[in-house]
Amino acid sequence: MESNVNLIHPYVGKYLRKEVMPHGMCPGCGNMSIANTLIRAIDKKYGSFDKFVFVSGIGCAAWIPSPHFLADTVHVVHGRAIPAATGIKLANPELNVIVISGDGDLAAIGGNHLFHAARRNIDIITILVNNFNYGMTGGQLAPTTPVNARTITTPYGNIEEPFNLAKLIAEAGANYVARWTIVHVLQLEKSLMRALDIEGFRFIEVLSPCTTRFIRWNMKSLNELLDYFKNNSVNIKVASEDDIKSGKIIVGEFAERDRIGYLRRYRKLIDRALSLWR
């Protein structure tokens, strides 16, 4: 029977590579929902991927842009997406450089670069997909795994405190910091649009389900986590001390500053250097 329903997503061919569809993410994974939201924000603002470069490290979230995005994508070694993006942006300031990678990649092995990028206020956007564990390598402990959660390397429960990444990067000096969960699609899109508007280091953390690993060992179903996201998220604007202490997920915008970005500072430095030499 012939169908006149178009089963091809409208982004395929324009923003996504036809050759790699259908994508290989697990059923219920949040990755392609994040991709969808990001592309929608870029589509609304720019109408194309022209002059965009996406940089990622190693892990499932790093596969969001590479190879799916029909754009320049740089898939580097584990943990080093941010320094690669730094080099790309500084060598060609015309490019819009976006890092998309996971919590293990950006906050564990690559943690050093993340904090320094925020301090430097380097002009890139970083989207950190936090799924509470290392999905690709089989579900190991991450610096974001909640206390007592089970992973394959914490079979008796996690005894380490996780990072509060959005707070940490806001403190480190990033110009824009937001945290949302995968159920906050519209809020995430708004944050991405905002991030695309400003200079300096912009950091967006997205809490996202890992159905194959984390959920399997810690929850009954994907829905349990999605419900948790829905019912336990409190916006930072209205969050009380009790909310923070009782383990609610604090979402929203953690920082919005207008510190001058690294690039504009560097251009001023060039002028200063030349005036001293001439």
Binding site: V55, R80, P83, A84, T86, G87, A91, H113
Partner: peptide, 20 residues
């Protein structure tokens, strides 16, 4: 740019080279 370590240094020159 003075980077935070040698790993960041080598990777950022790779990025810069890719950007031309």
């Amino acid at each position: 740019i003075q980077m935070e370590d040698e790993i960041a240094s080598i990777i950022s020159i790779i990025g810069a080279s890719l950007a031309g």
